[in-house]
Simulated assay, not measured.
Amino acid sequence: MTRPESDPDAVTVAETGIGKFQVEVLAGGATFMADEPVEAGGLDSGPNPYDLLASALGACTAMTLRLYADRKGWPLTRTIVRVLHTRTADGRDRFAREITLEGALDDDQRRRLLEIAERCPVHRTLEKGSEIITVQASPPDLGARERSGVCHLAAMTEACED
């Protein structure tokens, strides 16, 4: 199996040839597997795609809250974000986010941090929906891909503006 080239501007996903659904993900300098559970025909060797999407929401939320609390000098010692994904009866996806804020925060600080969570960049992306452009590429030419143009840190910083 030829390993795909790492690209700092894109996430690259390639089938491993092991199992029915197992893929290798190259993202942000890290490499990991994604898969489906055994009951769905996979090997359960990594998170499934919805787990990855929920992880993006949870990670962005925790990072955005950390950035905001640090800028304000607030005593947030740790954030834990638990994200649950379900599908509603009308076919819409629902992400339920439970946020635990640790530290000697007062009620106003906790309220404000929950408001900031609503502004994290991934939350906004999921709320608005996205345009997806698909093109066929000949390996290993990734030149046809779109560049995001938006740095995640810049988007988090914008979300933290008062």
Rank of each mutant, 00 (worst) to 15 (best):
D44V: 02
G42M: 03
R110K: 15
W74T: 05
P37K: 06
T79Q: 06
R145P: 05
L105N: 09
E127A: 13
M63Q: 06
I18A: 10
H152W: 05
F32Y: 15
R147F: 04
A54Q: 00
P139K: 06
V81L: 02
L76K: 06
T77Q: 11
G129L: 08
T61V: 06
T157K: 03
A14K: 00
L76N: 00
I133V: 06
Q109S: 09
G73I: 11
A14D: 04
T86H: 13
L105F: 10
D90K: 09
P140C: 13
A30D: 07
T2G: 01
T31Q: 12
V38N: 13
E36Q: 15
G103K: 09
T77W: 10
E24P: 02
V135T: 14
L67Y: 04
A89Q: 14
L65N: 03
R110W: 12
E131Q: 07
A144D: 11
T64P: 02
S148F: 08
D162C: 08
L84M: 13
L67G: 04
G29C: 03
E131A: 08
A56R: 05
A155N: 12
P47A: 12
V25N: 01
T134Q: 07
Q22K: 14
W74E: 05
I116M: 08
E39H: 14
A89C: 02
R82D: 15
D107Y: 06
E161R: 15
V23M: 05
D90I: 10
C160T: 13
F21C: 00
A10V: 04
E118G: 05
V150K: 07
I18R: 08
E131F: 08
V83Q: 09
S138Y: 11
A30I: 00
S45R: 11
R147Q: 10
G46E: 04
T2M: 12
G143V: 03
L76D: 01
R82N: 15
D44R: 03
R71D: 15
S130A: 09
